[in-house]
C-alpha cells in the first residue's frame, strides 16, 4: 500500500473495433494520488492522451459507486482488480505500489465481443433476462407488511441473489467463460419469492436455453466466479438453478411449459 504519489506503467488493451486484432500498449502515468480511484487514474491518462492529440482509451463506467455494473476492467489477471467484493470504480490506487506495472484488459468471452478498447458488448445478458428473467403480470405497488407471508430465510436468499449487478465479472474470470453465476442469480431472486412461482419452471428452461444460445461456456465448478463477484453471489444459486432445471425437465408435465 502506498501513501505518497506514484508513477506507474500501464499495459492497456487497445482495439479499434470488433474486427481489429487489438494489442497491449504501454503508457506511463506519473504523480498518481493513492486516493484516486482506478477509473480516475484512467481519466488522468485520457487527459494526457487528448492533450497529446492521441485517441483516448474507451472504457465503460457510469455510477462510479459500485452499483450500476457498468465498469469492467480485467486488472492484473483479475476482474475488477486485486481486491474482493468491489467493482473497478471502487478500487483505489492505494492498492498498488509506486513503480508497479498494471495490465488492463477487457472482459474476454465469445459472448462479450469487444466494441472498442476496454468496452465490451454485454447485451447477451440482456437477451437472457428478456428470455424469462421477469414476472409477466403486473404485481402492483408494494404490499402491506405481512400481506404475503414470506419466510425470512427466503427473503434473505432472494435479496442476496438480487444484489447481482450484471457486470459480467463471473464470465470474465471463469476459465470456461460460463455465465451460470449470473443466470442462476437472476433465476434465484424470483424462485425464492411467491410472485416468481407461476413461471418458475418455464423461466429456468428459457433462460438456460438463451444462455447456451449466446455461446457462453459450461460450468466446471472451479468457484472462481463466486470468489471474484463484487456482490458475493453464492454458488448455492447455481445448485438451485440446476435443481429447478432438472425438476422442470424430468418431473414436470409438458403442459406446464
Amino acid at each position: 500500500m502506498s501513501t505518497g504519489n506514484m508513477n506507474l506503467t500501464l499495459k492497456v488493451w487497445r482495439q479499434k473495433n470488433s474486427k481489429d486484432q487489438g494489442r497491449l500498449v504501454d503508457y506511463k502515468v506519473s504523480d498518481i494520488s493513492p486516493d484516486m480511484s482506478f477509473l480516475e487514474m484512467f481519466d488522468v491518462l485520457n487527459e494526457q492522451l487528448i492533450s497529446k492529440g492521441e485517441e483516448p482509451i474507451v472504457f465503460d463506467h457510469d455510477c462510479r459507486e459500485g452499483i450500476c455494473g457498468m465498469c469492467s476492467m480485467f486488472i492484473n489477471g483479475r476482474p475488477h482488480g486485486p481486491k474482493q467484493g468491489i467493482t473497478t470504480c471502487q478500487l483505489h490506487m492505494r492498492s498498488f505500489k509506486d513503480g508497479d506495472t498494471i495490465v488492463v484488459e477487457p472482459w474476454r468471452a465469445q459472448a462479450f465481443p469487444v466494441i472498442k478498447d476496454l468496452s465490451v458488448d454485454r447485451s447477451s445478458f440482456d437477451r437472457i433476462i428478456a428470455a424469462g428473467g421477469f414476472i409477466s403480470v403486473n404485481t402492483g405497488s408494494a404490499q402491506d407488511a405481512n400481506n404475503i407471508p414470506i419466510p425470512k430465510q427466503d427473503a434473505d436468499a432472494a435479496f442476496e441473489a438480487a444484489a447481482c449487478i450484471g457486470c459480467g465479472a463471473c464470465v470474465a474470470t471463469c476459465k470456461n467463460a460460463s455465465a451460470m453465476l449470473f443466470v442462476s442469480a437472476k433465476i434465484s431472486q424470483l424462485a425464492h419469492l411467491p410472485q416468481g412461482q407461476p413461471e418458475r419452471y418455464r423461466r429456468v428452461q428459457s433462460m438456460v436455453a438463451q444462455m447456451d444460445a449466446e455461446g457462453f461456456g459450461n460450468c466446471t465448478n472451479t468457484g472462481a466466479c463466486e470468489a471474484e463477484c463484487p456482490k458475493g453471489i453464492s454458488l448455492e444459486n447455481i445448485a438451485l438453478m440446476n435443481r429447478d432445471y432438472y425438476s422442470a425437465k424430468f418431473l414436470k408435465e409438458e403442459e406446464i411449459h
Binding site: 499495459k11 488493451w13 487489438g22 497491449l24 480485467f74 492484473n76 489477471g77 483479475r78 486485486p82 495490465v103 484488459e105 474476454r108 468471452a109 465469445q110 459472448a111 474470470t173 476459465k175 470456461n176 467463460a177 460460463s178 455461446g215 457462453f216 461456456g217 459450461n218 466446471t220 465448478n221 472451479t222 468457484g223 472462481a224 470468489a227 471474484e228
Partner: peptide
Amino acid sequence: NRAARPVKYAYNDGNANSKWYS
C-alpha cells in the same frame, strides 16, 4: 469451453480465485 473464449487473456491470475487442480 475453449471456443467460449477465442481470445485469451495476456495475463490471467487463476490462482487468485480457484485451485489449480480445479
